[in-house]
Design a protein around this nucleic acid. Structure first.
Lengths: 132, 132
DNA sequence: CTTCTATGTTGACGAACGTCGATCCAGGAA
DNA sequence: TTCCTGGATCGACGTTCGTCAACATAGAAG
């Protein structure tokens, strides 16, 4: 089921030291954008969090669907996108299909968004007083 | 310039301990999805990385535009989306407009995507041998 | 075999998105 | 003032996305 259809999963070419330290090239940006785009939908975010927070063995689709006011094919479609983004994987066990998180991808995103240590935070020029 | 038009910047209601530990509710998901959607475009990712990697004082739009094969209004539009997502802010200095990163937002995203410590990684039930 | 249930797939529709040309606004220079 | 330049806004176009109903598929149970 998780055969050859991952688009932006494993290899990025490098370890991606973060997009906050050096401008990333077009290829990296395109690949990363696919994953972020997969996260750019409330339904998929909730699906991912429901799957990720169930730490054991995987979550059955039949547990996910009733949490939404959406038709079953819609849920299936969102799960497919999350899978193609390399964020989750799935397996059929008898009648049901179970999904689980691929923490490598979320780890990678977290590392990319985190700044090295305590980046200088370039001397507030008078602005930067935005978020609470 | 950075007045009242941020949509998903500051307050989330809580500190958001991460979407990997507990299923997030509809409101949190909707708000988070706006930010991830802003990151879900290669051009915006490159813009953000170019802005973020210039640690001092901000980047002029005139330094950003020539890096893309896009018309100037398109770049302006992408910058606006990044600003509405609370990821960057800008200021006019004379003739030019300078953009800079709002690290609070990227910090928040990184924290949300990171798992608490070394999450159990739920005893591979036979699957989980997917990636690489 | 047939039947039932749980999911994935297909095709279509409206809405949102990315892009552009044209235009407008803000500042600096003459 | 009038010009010019950097950047934002507007309106429109084609593409992509989210959603659904209909259908297809995979196992389990008769």
């Amino acid at each position: 089921m998780s055969k050859h259809e991952r688009d932006a999963s494993g290899r990025t070419g490098a370890c991606c030291p973060g997009l906050l330290t050096a401008p990333l090239d077009e290829g990296q940006a395109t690949e990363l954008a696919k994953v972020f785009k997969a996260l750019g939908d409330p339904v998929r975010l909730r699906l991912l969090s429901m799957i990720a927070s169930r730490a054991g063995g995987g979550v059955c689709v039949c547990d996910l669907t009733p949490a939404f006011d959406l038709a079953q094919p819609t849920i299936s479609h969102h799960l497919k996108l999350l899978r193609q983004a390399g964020l989750i994987d799935c397996e059929r066990r008898g009648t049901w299909v179970y999904y689980w998180l691929l923490p490598e991808m979320t780890d990678r995103l977290a590392a990319i968004l985190a700044r090295p240590a305590g980046q200088p935070l370039p001397e507030p020029t008078g602005h930067a007083g935005a978020a609470s």
